[in-house]
Structure formats: structure tokens, C-alpha cells
């Protein structure tokens, strides 16, 4: 009977480990997958379509890019943060910032019309993104619309490992006026964030979470045995919103909000918020004053941001 149990246990463990290995292998394969974005600028009316420019970006899954358009009176900066969230799905967070010259004020100062939009698109590989920099021009003869179509393609790189990491931009058809430019880059999107609360220098609560770039993530700060007042449950909502390459360590722009939970009514009160620049791997410290926690102790909040393990190999 005992032997049977041991055999069953070994079988289960072996199966679980096999599943784990399989998952890690498939994750590795996902990491090595490459994405190609074909960016086509075309003018369209009801009857005709003409391609003006064509650019192709190719890189590892998670490659980001910007499309910039600048004419004499109009400027568009469109950024695209791309994540492969499923084998056949891309999550693309786009930010559109536009600025258009409007005219002059009575004091002869230039006036601009500015607009900022954020969009998150979940995209299959049978879909594409359509960007209309100047909006839709419909009706009337000669009312042509400028379309920028972004078409993603997923493929496995069969070339050598050295070249598989390379980021490529091919300008297949340049725009004669040079008014559209494309940039591509590979920055980490996943960060391991550790938040610690200290009271008089002693750690009383800690929480860790993986934070996606430009997405607010909740980190529960679990109190330890040193925390006397368990009612003071704290939660941090943390965002990494900027990434800057630097040596020896890269910088990240962060934003945070600290909430205090009240057990009696399940309500949460925001007690602190702020933003800053953190050096990857280094502690970022903030003082929590006594009034916020209604205590005599000196409270301190520490954040430590690192690139997630899955990002460190890239």
C-alpha cells in the first residue's frame, strides 16, 4: 500500500514537473517570437486608394514604436506599447498627442489646439490598426483621408540567435515630403516592485507585485508580527510610466498612491500620493507622517523597482 502511494506521488510529481517544463519551454518560445509591424500611409477617397509611404518594423515580441507626423501647422506623436498577451493576441497601448496651429491672439501670440488620447487595443493577428491623424474627411469631391495602417504579423525567427534579437526598420517606400517618421525600441514592460513599510526603522509590512508598464497595479502590504495595529492595513497602487536608458542603471518614472483600509467599514482612504524617478534596483524612500497613520511612530515607505526576470534576458 505504501509503495503504491509513493509511486502515485512520484507519478504526480513527474507529471507536474513535465507540465512546468513544457510551460517554461513554450514561454521561452514566446519570448523568441518576433513581430513585424507594417506601417502604411495611404490616401483614400470613396473610389481610390494610393499608398504614400511604407515602413516595416521587425523585432522581438514586446517591441514598441512611435509614429510621428509633422506638417507646417500640425504635429502628431503616436506611441505604441505592444505586449504579446496570448499566442494570437497583442495588447497595444497607444497614446496620441496632437498639436495644431490655431492662429494668433490679439497680442499676436501663436495659439495652438492640443489633444491627448489614450487607447488600449486588443488585437488579433488578422486585424490591423487604423490611425487617422486628421480625422475622417467625408463628403464632397476631393475629400481625401489620410490613413496610417499598422498591420502586425507574428513569426518565429529561424535565423541565428545573434540576429534574432536585432531590431530592424525598413523604409520600403519613403514619403517624399519626409513628414512621417517612425521610431522603434525595445524597453522592459514588466517590473518587479517591492514595497516595504517601516515603523521606527523596523519593517512592519511588505508587498511585492509584478507591474506592467503604464498600468496601475495594486500591491497589498501584508503586515508582519511586528505590526501592532493590524487595523492599519495599507495598500499601494503603483505605476511605472517612463523608462529611460542610462548607465550604469536605467531610470524609471513612477507614480504611487497609498491607501489605508478600515476593517470596520471596508472603506479605503488615500493617505499619500506622489511620483518620482527611481534608479532600477535602488531604494526610493518616502516619509509617512504621523497624522496619516494616527500614531507616534516614524513611518517610512520604501519602493524598490527591478526589471522582471522575464525581461532581464532580453
Amino acid at each position: 500500500m505504501k509503495i503504491k502511494k509513493v509511486f502515485l506521488l512520484i507519478t504526480i510529481l513527474f507529471t507536474v514537473s513535465l507540465i512546468g517544463v513544457n510551460r517554461s519551454l513554450s514561454a521561452k518560445a514566446d519570448e523568441q517570437k518576433r513581430v513585424r509591424f507594417q506601417i502604411v500611409a495611404a490616401q483614400e477617397n470613396s473610389t481610390e486608394r494610393k499608398v504614400l509611404s511604407q515602413t516595416t518594423i521587425e523585432g522581438l515580441a514586446g517591441t514598441d514604436f512611435n509614429v510621428n507626423l509633422q506638417t507646417a501647422n500640425f504635429k502628431l506623436h503616436a506611441s505604441f506599447i505592444c505586449d504579446l498577451v496570448a499566442p494570437d493576441k497583442l495588447k497595444i497601448k497607444s497614446k496620441l498627442d496632437t498639436r495644431r496651429f490655431y492662429g494668433y491672439s490679439p497680442a499676436n501670440l501663436p495659439l495652438y489646439e492640443e489633444d491627448a488620447q489614450n487607447h488600449t487595443l486588443i488585437l488579433g493577428f488578422d486585424e490591423n490598426i487604423v490611425l487617422l491623424p486628421f480625422g475622417r474627411n467625408s463628403g464632397g469631391s476631393g475629400n481625401e483621408t489620410l490613413k496610417i495602417e499598422i498591420t502586425p504579423t507574428l513569426f518565429a525567427d529561424v535565423s541565428s540567435a545573434e540576429s534574432s534579437d536585432a531590431l530592424k526598420i525598413n523604409i520600403n517606400k519613403p514619403l517624399p515630403s519626409g513628414e512621417i517618421t517612425v521610431e522603434a525600441f525595445k524597453n522592459p514592460h514588466r517590473f518587479q516592485v517591492e514595497a516595504i513599510v517601516l515603523a521606527d526603522g523596523r519593517e512592519i509590512a511588505r508587498g511585492t507585485s509584478e507591474v506592467l508598464f503604464d498600468e496601475e497595479q495594486e500591491i497589498r502590504l501584508a503586515p508582519n508580527t511586528a505590526a501592532k495595529n493590524s487595523a492599519q492595513l495599507l495598500t499601494a497602487k503603483f505605476t511605472v510610466n517612463k523608462y529611460t536608458r542610462n548607465r550604469p542603471q536605467d531610470f524609471v518614472g513612477i507614480g504611487y498612491r497609498i491607501f489605508q483600509a478600515h476593517l470596520e467599514n471596508q472603506a479605503q482612504t488615500e493617505i499619500l500620493s506622489g511620483s518620482g524617478i527611481a534608479i532600477l534596483g535602488n531604494d526610493l524612500r518616502y516619509q509617512l507622517n504621523n497624522n496619516q497613520l494616527a500614531d507616534d511612530k516614524k513611518y517610512e515607505l520604501r519602493f524598490n523597482v527591478r526589471a522582471a526576470l522575464s525581461e532581464q534576458n532580453k
Partner: peptide, 28 residues
């Protein structure tokens, strides 16, 4: 004549996802 400003009629920028059209393949 070639500047993209000829498309600018003061509209707001738009972005959306759509099913891929066969024309994209022909553009390639």
C-alpha cells in the same frame, strides 16, 4: 502639393482596430 497638410481640415485624430483588408496583402 506633396505635403500631408492637404488632408488637414481641422479634424480630431482617431484610432481603431479593424479586420485586415485584402488590399494590405496587395500593398506588400
Amino acid at each position: 502639393e506633396i505635403s500631408l497638410s492637404r488632408f488637414d481640415r481641422g479634424g480630431r485624430a482617431e484610432i481603431y482596430a479593424t479586420r485586415r483588408q485584402p488590399s494590405i496583402e496587395s500593398d506588400k
